[in-house]
Design a protein around this nucleic acid. Structure first.
Lengths: 392, 392
DNA sequence: GGCAATATATTTAGCTTGTATCTAAAATAC
DNA sequence: GTATTTTAGATACAAGCTAAATATATTGCC
């Protein structure tokens, strides 16, 4: 039973091919000389690796200068130019909610090419029907992107429940626990897809670090406030899961003074509307009303916003004092409104924690989970590029 | 600017040498055939790697069978046998407290060979004097181990303050912030040592996972309760630091109902003694008294223990609901007494968190930080084995 | 004591992948 | 139209691995 696979000469090629591919992913077009500089390899190796990658379908050689160089009028023999074959395959990013599923298709650069949302007929439909609806969303999104199921290299999927490092849902989560295995085996069987299940807040964190306001931040917490309040925690650039995938769950807020774990945004909105005299039905409308009133200078509305800011500050502070992130991003349904609360929250934070983070609001809107799901799938594809078969 | 170093054929040897060395570390004596099986390498490679490791001083070949094989009366040509040269170098583990410093010396297998504690003259002595005392503890421990400063390969050191991933103390930590740079440069200059500074609770977690009750647990939290209450958090086998090294700080307990961050054990002991009518001076004596009274059936003492159990349960629950560890270990000054509280804590946990962990008490006693510091230093030595020069 | 069986050691040939160096090619610049 | 410059391509060689053939030392049996 070999503990570790022996390192054979082929490993070198894999490592160097990954390194070259990484550079090509990060640039528009790369010449051999550029690749030499960025990877530290010699020209011979770079060329050999590129031929390899071309044969496997991951990159493409641009032919003779059919375009004018914008910057430098280069002297010397023209360089061979390589670029990522970004349409060599596609990934799917899924946001599977309780009422709705959204599927997004992206190419290997992460450019979103198609999108589709489907609603579930009812909350208590059987797992098969639910999977059917998910599948329909996927196929429609693929059609919108002008491609088909065979070109999908990986599927990232987010649900609002703890998911462990292996993509399994805890057995105690009755609502989702059957769904995870079923979804994976169904999509594997129907299309041959590899489904990577993750917690929605974790995906939000991936998305925010990739294309949101936490770009490039290694120690990042994303609060996903919607039907539920959950946190996606990245430490040193890695997602935290914990033993059963429940890291980032906010259940402990029950124990925190001045907040309650049921203080998801729905609850808060209901409270605002109650206190602010907005429309009786809690939700977006009433929340917007409170913000409008506050903007108009209404003292009652302003007081509500103050209370809300303090609440958010307490939540953020409790997380920050234990995890010490560089930045906390507020995302989900509240994000749009939360901008108005930022100054208040930021001002209050030092009162509650010795390590106050930068606080921002997500610019990704509804797409926060699908963007993260796409990133999650791309991470998988990039890590396994040389094992995946392209061009089916 | 090469982003990544090019993978040359030499990389293979490094990878395979690390792999062979890892197996040899994990066994008493290994034959070539065993190494082949465990590493997946061929005999030729295994032998070549071993000759290499012998030349570098990390392993040693045992000569002809000067001992009888206990288990198997082996047929065939006798195998060459290799073992770790565990005295090829040593590591130091330091526990630098406010009042005392303890140094422990261990060989490459982690066997502790020498130990020494030194007290500081006063709390407000200048950094140089403090460093002097630390140095004295080191030299005495080395002498006790029968070796000297030249054989030290790395030094792990724990302090009761946030330390970031690079071993730096936040500038805002006045007490330690000058100390860290000074300590490192002083020991580097005096003896050429590499000092790896870490938070004491983090080291406690390393120690507990290595030789404590959390052996082999990847998602582990160690609560280090002494003058301060701090947590060392391991997720997926890695220590959490956060942006400034303050991950695991318990400041958020200020925000938690029914606990306060000042509820270190000293405070609790004071409260017990007050409530239990023990000796007026808070501390060990009074704490012990409460436990004795409780064991004797005294209702007041029992009530105190109940309150204390609930408090601990709340603390553990708040951590566990956010981090979802598999196990929480209670260590530090309280550990000895805490055993009596375990049943109560375990029973209360499900009331406060949906993901209750296993709770245990550290068996490492006072040594918890030095053991972790040794592990920390060994991790460094093992990771950099092929870059380190042996046998000065 | 000699011989088969067995397990391990050693040697040799060949493959992959890398570097280093030299020569050839294709563009610009004057 | 020739020199300069930049990149491409080819050749020689080194490191490290596998695989297969050969050699060696021990046990066990007759």
């Amino acid at each position: 039973m070999p503990h570790a696979a022996a390192a054979t000469p082929q490993l070198l090629r894999r490592v160097n091919a990954q390194s070259v591919l990484g550079v090509i992913r990060a640039t528009e077009v790369a010449t051999g000389t550029e690749l030499m500089a960025r990877t530290g390899l010699t020209r011979a190796s770079v060329i050999a690796v590129c031929e390899d990658l071309i044969r496997r379908g991951w990159i493409r050689e641009l032919d003779a200068r059919d375009e004018d160089q914008p910057g430098s009028p280069r002297k010397g023999r023209p360089a061979r130019r390589f670029e990522l074959n970004s349409r060599a395959g596609f990934v799917l990013g899924l946001d599977i909610g309780a009422a709705t599923t959204t599927a997004a298709v992206a190419d290997l650069r992460g450019t979103v090419l198609g999108r589709s949302s489907e609603s579930f007929r009812a909350a208590d439909i059987p797992a098969e029907e639910r999977i059917d609806v998910v599948d329909r969303a996927c196929r429609r999104a693929l059609a919108a992107a002008g491609t088909g199921p065979a070109s999908v290299l990986a599927v990232g999927a987010g649900i609002a429940a703890p998911v462990d490092r292996d993509g399994n849902v805890l057995a105690s989560q009755h609502f989702w626990s059957l769904f995870d295995v079923g979804l994976r085996s169904a999509l594997k069987e129907l299309h041959g897809w590899t489904v990577l299940l993750e917690n929605d807040a974790n995906l939000a964190a991936l998305g925010e670090r990739w294309r949101g306001s936490g770009a490039g931040v290694d120690d990042l917490v994303v609060l996903l406030a919607g039907e539920r309040l959950g946190a996606g925690v990245m430490e040193s650039g890695r997602l935290l899961h914990g033993r059963g995938g429940a890291a980032g769950e906010m259940g402990y807020l029950d124990l925190v003074q001045g907040v309650g774990s049921s203080d998801g945004i729905a609850t808060l909105a209901r409270q605002w509307s109650a206190a602010g005299g907005g429309p009786a039905a809690g939700g977006e409308a009433s929340a917007r009303r409170v913000f409008e009133d506050a903007a108009a200078g209404d003292p009652a509305a302003l007081a509500i916003l103050d209370r809300l800011s303090e609440r958010m500050a307490r939540v953020i502070a409790s997380v920050s004092s234990f995890i010490n992130p560089e930045q906390v991003v507020i995302g989900g349904a509240v994000a749009e409104s939360a901008g108005a609360l930022l100054p208040g929250i930021t001002a209050l934070l030092p009162r509650f924690t010795a390590t106050p983070p930068r606080v921002t609001v997500s610019p990704l809107g509804d797409a926060i989970v699908t963007v993260g799901a796409i990133r999650h799938a791309l991470d998988y594809v990039e890590a396994n590029a040389l094992e995946l078969e392209l061009g089916r």
